[in-house]
Amino acid sequence: MLKINNLHAKLEDEDKQILKGVSLEVPAGEVHAIMGPNGSGKSTTSYVLSGRDGYEVTDGSATLYGEDLLEMEPEERAAAGLFLAFQYPVEIPGVGNMTFLRTALNAQRKRRGEEELSAAEFLKLIREKGKALNIDADMLKRPVNVGFSGGEKKRNEILQMAVLEPKMCILDETDSGLDVDAMRLVADGVNALRAPDRAFLVITHYQRLLDHIRPDVVHIMSDGKIVKTGGPELALEVEQNGYADLLSEVA
């Protein structure tokens, strides 16, 4: 499904190379985790994949279902099925959560040539999805993420994912800042979406989340590259020993 090959990216305005040859492949139906020290380029990878300004791809490729992601506008990538749950979800004062999500969903559907949802259909959908994530009507009425606690923001990301039903879901540290119960809600939300035609790339620092969302493959990123790929046991190893041993081993 998602194929990243030798991806190199630098900052647009600075001579600073951040991604130095990332390669990985996530087949449909699988959950992959990316772990790695702070500043190793995990978030940057997710931004470059979703098309954020400020980065320049200097080499390599990234495709979704064989389509060149890097050539598309961010909204086209979304319609193609890519979703990024942000490490730091953005507050947008004045734009209601519902308006935002309905606009997003219908824009995606329109782009894919599907029928748009009416206000009533959408309301039904979002109520149902919100309920599972413990997001009440009051939160939905508020402006996007404004006044949401850290954990509420993360739950809101998962709600958006549940409503948009993307094919390729990237979760950037969705577990950070979550209490134990919220973590379970988020994990349940993700697990409910698991499907043979959907894949997940879960960026995390902790084994905790991976206890709930069992990954098929774990990648270790360091200094802008995937330096090691293995099974779920790799995450346990990181949890117990940190990165030092692992990284010296591959160096």
Binding site: G51, A104, Q108, V144
Partner: peptide, 10 residues
């Protein structure tokens, strides 16, 4: 970017 990443056209 946040809005566009959800599929809202620019």
């Amino acid at each position: 970017f946040y809005l566009r990443s959800r599929g809202v056209p620019r």
